[in-house]
């Protein structure tokens, strides 16, 4: 049991949609747990990461905490995968890159519709935002990219089973899409 590959997953600046897509493999998840052991992941609610064979990163890098978590994953995972549009190129959150951070924060916390007690939060517990949202390969080395919003359950299944089997990974045409 102990020599099963260990897999960790996390969502940075994403919507957890890629994690939902992973759950969409349905009953194949039973096969998956035969193949791997989950380490830190929202699926198990384990909060700290150990040495892992595979790390799946959903979401782009939008704040200081994202950077810290991403670096931690890179340190602990032999293979790191950008899962989904946001991890691959920033995705929807990167649309805020059309505006300055000041514009974004003022819209949300100062001048926007329905704002009460206007003021930009300054609690040290809240991670500071980067001036732009970045894909994860701008911060750490990434070994594989799985595009899609989200990548389909079949895409994730193809990837995981072929990678774990040590095969070259080949996707059918319909499994690679950017939307």
């Amino acid at each position: 049991m102990t020599d099963k590959p260990r897999v960790a997953t996390t969502s940075l600046c994403g919507c957890f949609g890629c994690h939902m897509s992973l759950l969409d493999i349905d009953e194949r998840i039973l096969q998956l747990v035969q193949l791997v052991r989950f380490d830190r992941t929202p699926l198990t609610d384990i909060k700290t990461i150990g040495e892992c064979d595979l790390g799946l990163i959903e979401g782009g890098v939008a704040n200081a905490e994202n950077v810290e978590v991403l670096r931690e994953f890179r340190r602990h995972c032999k293979v790191l995968v950008a899962v989904g549009a946001c991890a691959v190129n920033g995705g929807i959150p990167a649309m805020r890159n059309q505006f300055t951070l000041k514009e974004c924060l003022e819209e949300s916390y100062v001048g926007g519709v329905g704002v009460h007690n206007p003021g930009i939060p300054n609690d040290p517990e809240i991670p500071l935002l980067l001036n732009q949202v970045h894909p994860i390969h701008e911060v750490v080395k990434v070994d594989y990219f799985l595009p899609g919003c989200p990548p389909s359950a079949d895409t994730l299944w193809t990837f995981l089973t072929e990678l774990l089997a040590g095969q070259p990974i080949a996707f059918p045409y319909t499994q690679i899409h950017y939307d």
Binding site: F99, H134, Y144
Partner: peptide, 11 residues
């Protein structure tokens, strides 16, 4: 599979 290069994010 990915744009590979650092994006320019033009405004």
């Amino acid at each position: 599979l990915a744009p590979h290069y650092p994006p320019f994010f033009p405004r």
